[in-house]
Design a protein around this nucleic acid. Structure first.
Lengths: 217, 217
DNA sequence: ACCGTATTTTGACATATATCAAGACGGACA
DNA sequence: TGTCCGTCTTGATATATGTCAAAATACGGT
């Protein structure tokens, strides 16, 4: 997945990531407190991560798709500080981190790539902090949908047709809202002609207006 | 600041970070969009970072003190995605990132340290996402105060006496609340005997109860 | 195709926090 | 010491979102 590597460098990286595992819906890739050995590269399927509060409340912190690297939070403490759950059948490669570090000492472009991945994670989290801290319900949902739309586009799929892998409850947990609020916002968007909502199938009818909503309501 | 380095390794790192700058209150260390060359190590003083929304809303994303490394968000895009402002007079070292990368390829323990710093940032952000997404006002403030208290302890200061460097407005922006809500929460904590509040001087009177509040209200 | 279960929608109502507005306080400076 | 200006507190009220409950709908397994 890093770009501009030579064939032999690429081969060494492949070699490192040969242990591919499959997970069924609901399986944990890791749990809070598990000790950290490997990053996980999602090859197919999708995964959610969540942090748990002592009293049982939880916060979803990301929805991840094929192509993403997951588990970076654990580097700092050598154990996982959140948990990752498969949302559908997944194929995941394990990338032993000690070997990744070793290899990235030898291959500058891999090192750079690793740094970018970590930094991107920080940027993404900051964006969600902005969302959680200063946007209202409909703005949050609009932003969320636009992100999904962009992801679709990046994977070469139709950007206005979304097939959600997560429930209203999960969307709510991610956006800091209750599931009823999510449901009402969907209904409202439909009433206003922004979306066509059929359970988890969403069609974006008015992308420009959705963008305006996401930026400022 | 990385531990277990040899004297010569340390010297090379020192060498790299020789350009120390001072900032006055309100000065920018960098702004959104500035191109990225260096990380910044705060030697003294304190700094806040914030992300800006197109419509002018802003979200404070961190309060940083001496000993912290700042600017990691910019690695992914080669320009800064947030801005950093001095909250009091500061001394800051610039750490040219390209050279940091080079050095960390040669010194595994520096590499490891850099990774831990980035990962810790991710963990911290996740914690704030939990706070913003699923805690109520008083829980947020209690959590915030406990964090400050721990920071004080880590610096060898009295952990129950806090001298805030930020206004109620800034605390609100960080915690996703309005300044009036922060003020009321302080008043309420004082009424209940948890705190002694004198403007920006806060004394924690009942640490255990504050902890309970932070975990579950 | 049908049943049972989980998810989603919708409504009525409760509540936390925001908003607006007025004073009080405190520190910088003459 | 007094004045000014930004910060903070407090009150009255508005509003967005949460809560509780019931019905509608979608979905997986037999």
């Amino acid at each position: 997945m890093p770009t501009n590597l030579s064939a032999s460098e690429l081969a060494r990286l492949e070699d490192l990531s040969n242990s591919k595992r499959t997970y069924s819906t609901g399986d944990y890739l890791y749990r809070t407190g598990d000790c950290f050995l490997s990053l996980h590269a999602i090859r197919s399927g999708s995964v959610k991560t969540r942090v748990l509060h002592e009293d049982g409340r939880e916060q979803l912190t990301s929805f991840l798709m094929a192509g993403e690297i997951i588990g970076l939070d654990a580097i700092s403490t050598d154990f996982h500080t959140c948990e990752a759950v498969a949302m559908e059948p997944c194929e995941v490669c394990e990338l032993p981190f000690a070997q990744m570090e070793e290899l990235s000492r030898e291959i500058p472009s891999l090192q750079r790539h690793l740094h970018k991945i970590m930094s991107r994670e920080i940027v993404r989290d900051r964006g969600i902090m902005l969302l959680l801290g200063s946007m209202r319900a409909e703005e949050r949902l609009a932003t969320f949908l636009l992100n999904l739309s962009q992801q679709n586009a990046a994977l070469g799929m139709i950007s206005t047709q979304l097939r959600l892998k997560m429930s209203r409850l999960e969307i709510g947990s991610y956006l800091g809202l209750k599931l009823e609020t999510i449901s009402r916002a969907f209904s409202r968007f439909q009433e206003e002609g922004l979306l066509q909502v059929k359970a988890r199938y969403i069609e974006i009818l008015d992308l420009p207006r959705l963008r305006i909503l996401a930026v400022k309501s």
